[in-house]
């Protein structure tokens, strides 16, 4: 999946300018960058929500083949967790023996079961992240977009969410692009990093390539150099 010379403007505000980057189909693609550098704008553009030059994006599935979990955690507040999960399952027309990944089963037993009858509106931010990410993983799509899936989540649940998202790539052979501020949590998975800053892509490649390019041993140190 390739982005070539992508430029996006909101009114008078240029958000992305001649952006070039690549996303891998067999890795977790993580978009990093300071706040306001266009990470959500890039996801929105991939999702077909922003007008752009048709040649700028190639290799991406159509809008109908996308799942997109937005950054803001809004959903029907009066629905229970059970009703929300049922909605996603019914929309996908899941059979009773629908094949969930092992990580999804773990998350269900460890986290979701305990809050199954709680209303979505009464959940904490972290709990909503877990539930809505779980629900998005129930959808059968080609490409999954997650905007800040770890926002407001404690370290234990963050690890479970990452494993659940990574299983989409490793077990279900789907494509995933997500944004985050915390690259260290992803280090144990095969990742492709895209770093955005100043309207452009500062780096696009694997974590090893990033470390080699900056001659650093730690990813966060390498990122600091790239973002300078």
């Amino acid at each position: 999946m390739q982005v070539k010379k992508l430029s996006i403007t909101y009114g008078k505000n240029q958000v992305l300018s001649n952006l070039d980057c690549k996303f891998e189909t067999d890795k977790l693609n993580v978009i990093l960058g300071p706040n306001g550098t266009g990470k959500t704008t890039l996801l929105d553009t991939i999702a077909g929500l922003n007008k752009h030059d048709e040649q700028a994006l190639s290799g991406f599935p159509t809008q109908k083949q996308l799942a997109y979990k937005a950054q803001q955690l809004h959903f029907f507040p009066s629905l229970t967790v059970k009703q929300t999960i049922q909605l996603y399952a019914e929309i996908e027309n899941h059979p009773k023996n629908f094949n969930k990944t092992s990580t999804m089963n773990t998350i269900y037993n460890q986290v979701i079961k305990g809050i199954i009858d709680k209303k979505i509106g009464k959940l904490s931010g972290g709990e909503k992240q877990v539930v809505l990410t779980y629900c998005n993983c129930l959808l059968d799509r080609e490409l999954y977009l997650f905007d800040e899936p770890l926002s407001g989540v404690d370290i234990n649940n963050a690890n479970l969410i990452i494993k659940m998202i990574a299983a989409l790539v490793t077990e279900k052979h789907k494509q995933v692009i997500l944004t985050s501020h915390d690259i260290e949590l992803f280090e144990s998975f095969p990742i492709n990093i895209v770093v955005l800053n100043h309207q452009k892509c500062m780096f696009s490649g694997t974590d090893h390539e990033l470390l080699n390019a900056t001659n650093k041993a730690q990813i966060n140190d390498a990122l600091r150099i790239i973002l300078k």
């Binding site: 996308l66 997109y68 809004h74």
Partner: peptide, 13 residues
């Protein structure tokens, strides 16, 4: 405006 139409759209299509 609350963002959940966007969420719904990508579930339902």
């Amino acid at each position: 405006e609350s963002g959940y139409f966007k969420e719904l759209f990508f579930i339902v299509g």
